[in-house]
Design a protein around this nucleic acid. Structure first.
Lengths: 136, 136
DNA sequence: ATTATAGTTTATAATAATTCTAAACTATAA
DNA sequence: TTATAGTTTAGAATTATTATAAACTATAAT
């Protein structure tokens, strides 16, 4: 029923104290069947929906940042004003719908690169992302 | 020496009145040997450097937006808070240096995709961009 | 040329996302 | 049990961007 222990261990492993706020946020983010694309605003609404325990907006920002640093979340590239995050941390790509502003995952093996440039001297490739902008 | 006429014609063609502000901004953006990656803040500094005619920040925002809509500039995808623009409007890709936050163009033919996903029903691909994040 | 007007510029205010601050709280180790 | 280092919180501060509305100007019609 309640397997908070897994989250507690995961948090401890990353040097994050397992506070009730972090566990609650982790449950909301990671106990999902599908990957979740969200902004902080959206996550805040999910967490602080009527009747539930309240978590401050500052903590939601802090936690999203901490989870991103710990590698549990991935920040998504868009040109929009808000930051988007993704619970799918595997290397993958996105459709970005210019009309609806919705993001859809593209599985890694749906995109194949046959040529990738050499990075500038002294630099290493950290990550490669393809964004396909779509519209009607 | 002074070939403003080319800019005047270009602006008129796009339905933009050739005001002195727009011409000045166009000269600063497009009379360059290399492509120019910039934020509005950076462009504002370039335009309003000491001793030059002043253009309001609002006009710089308006003009960058108008030039982007007209297809003279390309907005670049990064997850950072500021919007980045590029005078290179040809289809191309970017290195984004996480340390220095600098963008570098990658020529279109330096990247080859051998597999691209089909867009969702009813949607067309408008643009495909590869961002390669690099770090030391 | 003169005038009317629709488009443009401008300073400033408003908004929105995010970060900062410092006091209260809490998990953890001693 | 206690000390402390990490965490949460409300609210203030910051930053990028957009909105507002008055003054200005390019252009077309007279």
């Amino acid at each position: 029923m309640n397997n908070n222990q897994a989250f507690i261990d995961k948090l401890r492993t990353s040097g994050l104290r397992p506070t009730k706020q972090r566990i609650l946020i982790a449950k909301n983010l990671f106990e999902r069947s599908k990957t979740f694309h969200f902004t902080v605003e959206k996550l805040n609404k999910v967490i602080n929906k009527k009747g539930s325990a309240k978590v401050s907006l500052a903590t939601i920002y802090n936690t999203v940042e901490a989870f991103t640093k710990a590698g549990y979340l991935k920040e998504i590239l868009t040109s929009k004003s808000k930051s988007y995050y993704d619970t799918n941390i595997k290397s993958h790509h996105h459709f970005y719908d210019e009309g609806t502003k919705e993001l859809t995952d593209i599985d890694y093996n749906q995109v194949k690169l046959s040529k990738v440039p050499v990075p500038p001297k002294g630099k290493k490739i950290k990550n490669l992302e393809v964004i396909i902008r779509i519209q009607k």
